[in-house]
Design a protein around this nucleic acid. Structure first.
Lengths: 295, 295
DNA sequence: AGGCGGTTGTGCACATACGCACATCACGAA
DNA sequence: TTCGTGATGTGCGTATGTGCACAACCGCCT
């Protein structure tokens, strides 16, 4: 059987170290009667006397000195541990795990790179996957989500920026099919869209209301595939105007509209939200967003 | 500032190890509400979240896994410590510290040697000094004292054997002075005695009553010095009959008398008296005493 | 010798921390 | 969907452990 409580070991440690019950009581901030009772209880559990009692104090037996050695090391370990943990909350070290959709990487990558550069020793992990990473399970520190406001869970979610979308086509496509003259003309074109009608993206819902199903000729699940398809002339498609500026051979056939905007959300788990690391990264994000040509 | 209580670390350790509050509560033998309160208190002290709470349990943050590592090592250390200490009470290892007067070493040495031989790894320390070693301060496990029954302190004292004393002289001395014919004839001889009139030894008090001070011509404080003086013919003197049998050139001029006997006492500190090591050594002593030609 | 400071040890009253019961929530299976 | 299981979280009454006051003891210094 193991030890019932670690505190009695701690008490015995102080007694062995200081040699007196009173001294140990002072250090521990308890009454000396408590110290005596702890020692008695511990000796009772172990079946061995840890100290020899006399009027000048307690002197450790062999078992007591053995405990002293072990508990001394433990005390040091715990002090260092507490220092590390307390410091960890106030400084930014270790890992910063960010999760989002891959489509946002052109926006997020510069921020993460700068954050890492300003915090040497920090490791940045940017996780993108089909499934949503669950902050509740500690899979990530901060998530940048798109769409409707994420709810539920112990997450603190705050609105971020609006990702501005416009309609693009490749030069090849436009040379063959021309550009749509008006909203009504869209029905005569082909489109690259997300697979499935359940997409919550506002520009897709806007599009689905105006063109027949047959016009949605290229459907994919991955954002990168869709982007490549648009570039290769598979059809017109919506892209973040910020992203599209970096891509060659793309022509903006319709400028951004407010109703196409996608709200981005910053979401962090409540347990991690107050840490310096997360707060600092959020500040970097918001600061970078000011110079983003999105709104 | 250090940690307030080690038990909360222990609780957090089990939670980090098992992943659930309920599991930790089972292992620790407490209610799960207690576990939650411990975690909350510890996190409050550290100012950092150790766990992320979700419906499936607690998953450790970086700080939590750090604590897990440290506390895991601590748990192992304490388990080993408890094993050592518990075993120490039931087995005989480490040191056995015996204190007595040097005069008894001919009797005690064989016992200690046999005890050490039967308990490999044990270190026997036989302390003899002018001052009495204080068992209360843990200076020795068992003391063999001579004279009046030792009292006071938290010592358990039990009567041991009677050391049988006789009067001896060297062949040289007897060739020069002859042997005393009767008790009254003692006044015509020289004696080797302990320095100071305050000796409590019964044979000395008996002698002091029968011979003039001037007869006590050689006085020493050390038993070995007295023995050597008798051997070298400085005068007659009392020796343990057991010891004298081993010495050459000594003649017993008066056989042992009951009133010369010195009571020996076995005294151990109450805190150590119940340990296997002490009990075992006491058994060796009593067993060896049966074959001593003392009574 | 005798008082003094510091120690251990103990009975009693109380506050802190515990266990209990219940509420709530999430996930999975039927 | 609905039910069931197993998890976390909380209010409340109680018991365990704590602090307090005092006693007894020892060593030291005057």
């Amino acid at each position: 059987m193991s030890i019932k409580t670690w505190d009695e070991i701690r008490t015995a440690y102080q007694v062995a170290r200081l040699g007196t019950v009173s001294g140990a009581a002072d250090v521990l901030g308890v009454h000396h009667a408590t110290v005596i009772r702890h020692i008695d209880a511990l000796e009772g559990q172990l079946g061995v006397k840890l100290f020899q009692r006399h009027a000048r104090g307690y002197t450790a037996t062999e078992a007591g000195t053995d405990l002293l050695q072990v508990a001394q090391a433990t005390d040091d370990q715990f002090i260092q541990l507490a220092g590390r943990i307390r410091g960890r909350g106030a400084s930014v070290t270790g890992e910063l795990v960010v999760t989002s959709i891959a489509m946002l990487s052109p926006l997020l990558n510069p921020v993460m790179i700068r954050f890492q550069r300003d915090h040497p020793g920090l490791i940045v992990r940017f996780l993108t996957d089909d499934r949503v990473f669950r902050l509740e399970y500690g899979e990530a520190h901060v998530a940048i989500r798109a769409g409707a406001a994420p709810e539920g869970g112990d997450n603190v979610v705050q609105p971020f920026v609006h990702d501005r979308f416009a309609l693009y086509g490749s030069k090849d496509y436009l040379a063959l099919n021309g550009a749509p003259e008006s909203d009504e003309d869209l029905a005569n074109h082909k489109f690259v869209v997300a697979d499935g009608m359940d997409s919550k993206a506002p520009f897709f819902r806007w599009l689905f209301d105006r063109v027949p199903q047959a016009s949605l000729s290229f459907r994919a699940t991955d954002g990168r595939v869709m982007r490549d398809a648009i570039q290769m002339g598979a059809g017109l498609g919506f892209l973040s105007s910020y992203e599209a500026r970096l891509l060659p051979d793309l022509v903006q056939v319709m400028p951004p509209r407010p109703e196409w905007r996608a709200q981005l959300w910053l979401v962090t788990h409540v347990d991690l939200h107050r840490t310096m690391k997360v707060q600092s990264f959020l500040a970097y994000l918001k600061d970078a967003a000011k110079s983003w040509p999105l709104e």
